[in-house]
């Protein structure tokens, strides 16, 4: 589904991603772990098309090169980024925001706007899925939301937009255990044979709830080790040093 080849990204002349390769197939969950500053969030932003970076390399989604697409075009192609720090947009209600998003994506695909009735039905259904309070959907986007509510709102939006590739950027940060469970449940319920998920996280904790098929260690802009779920446990136990040291010794 997603294929990343020799991806380089730099900002103001500083290279952050230094030739990253990654293959993700439909139906899979990949976890990307790594210490602070290894480039995890940059990878998420670059995949979503943030324009602050100079990017070289190839990113294809279902065979289509998306590396030159604008963020909204990538979204329409099915890329969804759950932000580490969801943005507040005062005065714009969640409902209005999602309606605009859903219909813009539909327009991109040549579909007519969704009927209000259908939209409402979808809204209610997905709201229940992530156990989001009705009050929150009527409030302005993320404004005055608690950390947990923001993250839950991200998963709610993900449910509404049904992406092919979901990237969760540190979605577990700032969540207590109940919120973590709800968010993880939401993600698991949305998982299907047709979509894929990339989970970016510091800690193994989230991976108890969202079981990854593959675990990658990102360090200094490259994936230095890949493995299965067990790798995450090993990292939890030993930290990153044992992986990094031989790297540094080179």
């Amino acid at each position: 589904m997603l294929s990343i080849k020799n991806l380089h990204a730099s900002v103001d002349g500083t290279e952050i991603l230094k030739g990253l390769n990654l293959e993700v197939n439909a139906g899979e969950v990949h976890a990307i772990m790594g210490p602070n500053g290894s480039g995890k969030s940059t990878l998420a932003s670059v995949l979503a098309g943030k324009e602050d970076y100079e990017v070289l390399g190839e990113i294809t989604l279902n065979g289509k090169d998306i590396s030159d697409l604008a963020p909204e075009e990538r979204a329409a192609e099915g890329v969804f980024l759950a932000f580490q720090y969801p943005v507040e947009i005062p005065g714009v209600s969640n409902v209005n925001f999602l309606k605009t998003a859903v219909n813009d994506i539909r327009a991109f695909k040549g579909l007519p706007p969704m009927l209000a009735k259908d939209f409402l039905k979808l809204l209610k259904e997905k709201r229940a899925l992530v156990e989001l309070d009705k009050k929150l959907t009527n409030r302005s986007v993320n404004e005055g939301f608690s950390g947990g509510e923001k993250k839950r709102n991200e998963i709610f939006q993900m449910a509404m937009l049904k992406p092919k590739l979901a990237i969760l950027d540190e979605t577990d940060s700032g969540l207590d255990i109940d919120a973590l469970r709800i968010v993880a449940n939401g993600v698991n319920k949305l998982k299907s044979a047709d979509n894929a998920t990339i989970v970016i996280t510091h800690y193994q904790r989230l991976l108890d709830y969202i079981i990854p098929d593959f675990v990658h260690v990102l360090y200094d802009g490259k994936i230095i080790k890949s493995g299965t779920k067990e790798l995450a446990l090993e990292l939890e136990e030993k930290g990153y040093d044992w992986l990094i040291k031989p790297e540094m010794a080179q």
């Binding site: 909204e72 990538r74 943005v87 947009i89 999602l98 813009d104």
Partner: peptide, 12 residues
Amino acid sequence: QIFYCNQRGIDT
């Protein structure tokens, strides 16, 4: 804010 909207499929 604009990027957030873009990411959700809304053009600039």
